[in-house]
Amino acid sequence: MPTEREEEYLETICKLQQLKETIGTTRLSEALKISPASVTEMVKKLGESGMVVRTENEGIGLTPQGNKKALNIIRKHRLCERFFTDVLKLPWDEVHEEACRFEHVLSDRVADALEAFLSHPETCPHGHPIPSKRGKTKKDDAVPLTSLHASQRGVVSRISEESHEFLGYLAALGLMPQVEVRVEQVAPFKGPLLVKIGGASYALGRDVAGKIFVRGVKG
């Protein structure tokens, strides 16, 4: 049975993998806000228990077993968030922290009961898909905007940004779910993207564009 700390690692690696990022010790230590030395230590430990593999080219990744475990934690986290917003009526920008604590103590049985009680929600309050009991994610073909090439189009499915004001600002520019965007230009060397929304073009930094997920990519 993995410890709480180990579960946090698996969860974070899984989320970074979904962003199609190459995961090194540095990236992981940034995301977890833990020193690189401790990260190296823990990755080694997780490797020994068969949860994590580390390869030259692809960096740190999850084994099938580790992936299952991680999806299980993510599922519990997102179910908790749903419960907090829908039933307890807590504000949606506060529930993430709370859920971080609950996810580790929830048994699989309680998680199943919670899912049934909430009548099988598909996404968390922030729009991220909730994995099923078997660790399957409901077909989510959304990819970060950064994975698109120039002249490709897609429809925004979610924006993983927590700041309410910033989301409002993006919305005023027309950048919100269900809006079609077209990538006009991608600067090389991890530079910004030029994105067309309606009649206007915007330069989006790679960090901002990475938080915007689109589906139905065409062109």
């Binding site: 600002y169 993006l170 520019l173 910004p192 030029l194 206007a200 073009s201 915007y202 330069a203 989006l204 930094g205 790679r206 960090d207 901002v208 564009a209």
Partner: peptide, 9 residues
Amino acid sequence: SSGLVLEVF
């Protein structure tokens, strides 16, 4: 640092 969002003409 945060990110760039700038209208371009």
